[in-house]
Design a protein around this nucleic acid. Sequence first.
DNA 1: TCCAGTTGGCTAACGTTGTTAGCTAAAGCT
DNA 2: AGCTTTAGCTAACAACGTTAGCCAACTGGA
Lengths: 192, 192
Amino acid sequence: MPRAGLDPAVVVSAAATLADEVGLANVTMGLLAERLGVRAPSLYKHVASQADLNRRIAALALTELGDQMRDALAGRAGRDALAAAAHTMRSYVIEHPGRYATTVRLDAGGPDDPVAQAGARLLESLATVVAGYEIDPADTVHALRMLRSQFHGFATLEAAGGFQMETDVDKSFEWLIDFVDRGLSASTPPGR
Amino acid sequence: MPRAGLDPAVVVSAAATLADEVGLANVTMGLLAERLGVRAPSLYKHVASQADLNRRIAALALTELGDQMRDALAGRAGRDALAAAAHTMRSYVIEHPGRYATTVRLDAGGPDDPVAQAGARLLESLATVVAGYEIDPADTVHALRMLRSQFHGFATLEAAGGFQMETDVDKSFEWLIDFVDRGLSASTPPGR
DNA sequence: TCCAGTTGGCTAACGTTGTTAGCTAAAGCT
DNA sequence: AGCTTTAGCTAACAACGTTAGCCAACTGGA
């Protein structure tokens, strides 16, 4: 009956690590409890439900990714910033597939939701990438959505093994960065 | 004890419809059986498991989408084809979110897998879109992956409610199509 | 130091879901 | 008509998420 010394942060962190190792779908309350040296029902002293746990993992993931993105973009602009953002995103999804998976299916939630806040911070970083190009202010939202779609789509397709191995995926990613960079460079107001 | 007259195709079709209505996560063998006027264990006479069922829904979805894509692209090229492909993709995901969800998480499978075959056919259609631009043959694979990422990413983000409602999503989508069109038009061999 | 209150862990138990085993009767074939 | 096949059923089990209720370990103040 010695105590395990758990708290929500420890539980969520362990769950995130477990998700990366065995896949989010295989993260069961029993398996997570075993990892923590505890029985499954004990987890409910720290987390309301499995859905709550997933939301917290998502908040953790978005926070981590947001921090990495902020650091990667520090002092960069234009094509440099774009490439840094792209690589940061891709690396995170490859290294933390389980964490990232929790961020894919989310049910909104209020504006004070930690998930929404972490997501907003990540979005701000991406917005600075767009700001590094001379885009018509009316188009920045569109450009931002394009960036998100591109990064998210590539990452999830790669994580799901959706690309055949014939051709180098790394090369495709570099090509994609170049493609977006040229497009954003050409999207300056006079270009329309 | 009258027979219900089921067969795999009927079961899969009903499951797909149910998934679109209540969400893939809420498709339970019991609920599906109820829809078909049958008890849950009876479904196993037509489908090996729930995982098998999901794969079959995915094959159905990719086939349907592939057919719609082929029809939409008939007689079109260049920007017309690109826009048609984009709208076809987006419409399908919005109308059939449950079906599309089954295609997101797939575990490869052999080359004779119906899922792989349907996916290959869809990919061929997308390839014709790329072929409608003058791209360096060495870059077509990259361009194709870029297209897939863009469409897939936008569709999943929109389906997940990832875009705030501030700005019109339709406009963003049109902007995105324009962005890709300009990029592919500028990616001709002499442009590199 | 002791005591009271709080709380993190436990066991037991329940509901849901996916799945298997084994039976029966409907459908099809000769 | 009879034989084989098979679609559907009931019963049952295992895994999982979750709740209820108990008890021992920590905490803070007298």
